[in-house]
Amino acid sequence: MTERSFIFVLLFRKKMTKAERTKQFILEKSAPIFNTKGVAGTAMSDIMEATKLAKGSLYVHFDSKEDLSYAVVDYNLDKLAEKSVAAMNKHKTAKGKILAFVDLYSDPLNPPVVGGCPMLNFGMEADDTNPIIKQKVNRMVQASPQKLAAIIEQGIKDGEFKNSWNAKEFGIKMFAMIEGGILMSRVSGNKERMTILINVIKKEIEENSI
Score class of each variant (00 low, 15 high):
residue 36 T to Q: 11
residue 163 N to T: 07
residue 194 M to G: 03
residue 126 A to S: 15
residue 4 R to N: 06
residue 51 T to Y: 07
residue 125 E to P: 07
residue 204 E to S: 04
residue 159 G to W: 02
residue 188 S to T: 11
residue 96 G to E: 03
residue 15 K to E: 12
residue 7 I to W: 02
residue 116 G to T: 09
residue 52 K to I: 00
residue 137 V to P: 10
residue 1 M to N: 08
residue 29 K to Q: 13
residue 3 E to K: 11
residue 83 K to H: 13
residue 164 S to A: 14
residue 154 Q to V: 00
residue 126 A to W: 08
residue 156 I to T: 02
residue 136 K to Q: 15
residue 28 E to K: 14
residue 18 K to V: 15
residue 12 F to V: 01
residue 32 P to A: 05
residue 5 S to A: 15
residue 10 L to I: 05
residue 105 Y to R: 09
residue 24 Q to E: 15
residue 207 E to K: 13
residue 4 R to E: 15
residue 112 P to Y: 02
residue 81 A to G: 01
residue 163 N to D: 14
residue 81 A to F: 10
residue 117 C to D: 13
residue 66 E to P: 01
residue 31 A to N: 03
residue 125 E to K: 08
residue 36 T to Y: 01
residue 174 M to Y: 02
residue 20 E to V: 08
residue 189 G to I: 07
residue 112 P to E: 09
residue 170 F to I: 06
residue 46 D to H: 11
residue 24 Q to L: 15
residue 102 V to E: 02
residue 31 A to R: 12
residue 58 L to V: 04
residue 23 K to P: 10
residue 149 A to Q: 09
residue 81 A to C: 06
residue 192 E to V: 13
residue 181 G to N: 06
residue 78 D to F: 10
residue 4 R to V: 12
residue 51 T to V: 08
residue 94 A to D: 01
residue 124 M to V: 14
residue 2 T to A: 06
residue 140 M to R: 13
residue 121 N to R: 12
residue 106 S to M: 01
residue 189 G to T: 07
residue 186 R to Q: 13
residue 206 E to G: 00
residue 163 N to K: 14
residue 54 A to D: 15
residue 68 L to Q: 09
residue 199 N to P: 00
residue 119 M to V: 12
residue 59 Y to Q: 09
residue 154 Q to H: 03
residue 26 I to T: 11
residue 129 T to I: 10
residue 131 P to N: 07
residue 88 M to P: 03
residue 100 A to E: 04
residue 113 V to Y: 07
residue 176 A to R: 11
residue 46 D to G: 09
residue 17 T to L: 07
residue 204 E to A: 00
residue 38 G to F: 11
residue 186 R to N: 02
residue 66 E to M: 06
residue 90 K to G: 06
residue 59 Y to V: 04
residue 125 E to T: 07
residue 191 K to F: 00
residue 22 T to M: 13
residue 157 K to M: 06
residue 153 E to Y: 00
residue 13 R to N: 13
residue 110 N to A: 10
residue 116 G to P: 12
residue 29 K to T: 01
residue 58 L to E: 04
residue 5 S to C: 01
residue 48 M to Y: 03
residue 102 V to R: 01
residue 172 I to Q: 12
residue 144 S to Y: 12
residue 130 N to H: 13
residue 179 E to S: 14
